[in-house]
Every structure is written in C-alpha cells, then in structure tokens.
C-alpha cells in the first residue's frame, strides 16, 4: 500500500524559533494518527503546516490524491491547495465557531461543501444534509436550527458532518474533544470511531489526551518542544514507552 501522505523533515519557524522541526512520517489510507504532547509542544503548528494552512519552511510533504497523483504541498499553487482542501481534505477545529458558520442553519453548514463543488439542487442538498445529521446522531428535524442553538457536543458532531459530507480522504482534527465534558466526549469518540471505520478516511488528530489516542489511533506521535520524540503503534507507546518524556506523560495519566 502507498501512503496517502508522506512527511519528510518538515519544519515551521516563527521568526527565529521553531514551532516544529524534523518531523517525518507516512500516513496510510484509512489510518488514524494521533499527535500527542503537552501544550506548546508544536502539535497545532504541525497540523496546520501539513494541511497547508501554514507555509512550511523546510522539508517535503507529498499528498496522493484519489487518482494516485502526487502533490508536493510545499510548492503547490494556492488554487490547487484550495481545491484539495475542498475535495480531498477536511478540517475539524477545537472551537466550533472556527469551523462552523454560526449564523446560518445546520442544513446550510452541511450543504456548503456540496454547493462549493457545484451541486445546485436544493431538494437533494437538503436530503443529503438530513442524512448526515442523522449519521452524526442529530435529528434531521434540527436542519433549520442554527449551531448556536446546539450543545457543544452537537456542534462538534455537526462539524464532522459538514466535513465528511463530500467524502474527503484525509481529515485533520485539532483537539476536537478539547472543549467537551468527559461524559459528552465518550459519545463523540464512539461516533468518530464508527464513522472512521465506515468511511475509511485517514485522520490526523491532535490531542493532549492519551486516552483519546488509546481509543482511536492506530499510531501515535509524541511531541516535545517542536520535535517528535517517539512514534509507533499506539498500544506499544502507551504500554511500553521508551522516551523519558513519553514515560512521564503515561505515568501522569496513570496517576490521574
């Protein structure tokens, strides 16, 4: 199998300081990769750089699209990057207000990407949006409600629907459970696991919660001060951490 995303020696600087550096890994279709590490370790910087929201300063990122065509994301024209972002990628943010249009209905939120791809039949858009609301466990009766009328957990599920509706192949998520109560988190993670399984999407998810990684991720990268200090199968990393920093992270959740 060929990777959907190949990352080699990627670095992003803020002025003289590195936000992340020397990051390399391959991601395969259908795989869930978690990036863990404490606050400020460079997780969000890495994710945004991979998604092309920030311009990398060093390294190579190669994305293989649905036709097998390779795209060098560091030199990709902005128009092509935006097209990939619309068709092949999704991006789920920690704060729903950054990832949703709060002033239009749930139905319009879910339909937006379809309309961006040229779908122009209102009845069909609405039917598809209703199906996707149900898939993320929101009643289709709420199609015309605004996200501001939704709970935090529903808002995050709506973000998922809004992204997955066009069947992207790679979805970036930055702390999607960060703002949720623990009880709500569990349901969200269950849903996510089921959708990932059903749709076969690849996911790169940033989280500072090792429990989330344990539940979802095939593989995990551990970041400290902008670098990946340990990478491997999630179970191995959590059960038998090698790097002292990972050992510290793991022992701190065991104690908690």
């Amino acid at each position: 199998m060929t990777p959907i995303l190949s990352v080699r020696q990627v670095a992003k600087r803020y002025g003289q300081r590195y936000g992340c550096r020397e990051v390399s890994f391959d991601l395969y279709p259908g795989e869930v990769l978690c990036i863990v590490g404490e606050s400020g370790s460079g997780k969000s910087t890495l994710l945004s750089t991979l998604a092309g929201k920030l311009a990398a300063d060093e390294g190579e990122v190669t994305f293989r699209d649905v036709n097998g065509t390779e795209h060098d994301l560091l030199t990709l024209a902005e128009a092509d990057r935006r097209r990939l972002a619309r068709t092949e990628w999704g991006f789920v943010t920690q704060h729903a207000r950054d990832g949703l249009r709060m002033n239009v209905s749930a139905g319009a939120n879910v339909s937006e990407r379809l309309m961006a791809l040229g779908q122009r039949h209102y009845g069909e858009l609405r039917a598809t949006a209703g199906e996707w609301l149900e898939k993320v466990e929101i009643s289709a009766e709420r199609l015309d409600d605004r996200p501001s009328q939704f709970s935090g957990g529903m808002q995050q599920r709506l973000q998922i629907a809004r992204n997955l509706v066009t069947k992207p192949r790679l979805v970036f998520m930055d702390e999607p459970t960060g703002g949720l109560d623990v009880s709500v988190q569990a349901r969200f993670l269950d849903l996510l696991r089921r959708l990932v399984h059903e749709t076969g999407i690849a996911v790169i998810m940033v989280t500072h919660d090792l429990g989330v990684a344990r539940l979802l991720a095939h593989r995990t990268l551990v970041m400290q001060q902008g670098r990946v200090v340990e990478a491997g199968l999630t179970d191995q990393i959590l059960d038998d951490p090698q790097h002292p920093y990972t050992q510290l992270l793991v022992s701190s959740i065991l104690q908690a």
Partner: peptide, 11 residues
C-alpha cells in the same frame, strides 16, 4: 469559490 453565495440562497 462561490459556494458561499449559495449558502445564502439556501438559507
């Protein structure tokens, strides 16, 4: 990228 305009009409 004009999908946004159709969001308004959808609404």
């Amino acid at each position: 990228e004009y999908g946004l305009m159709h969001v308004k009409l959808y609404e």
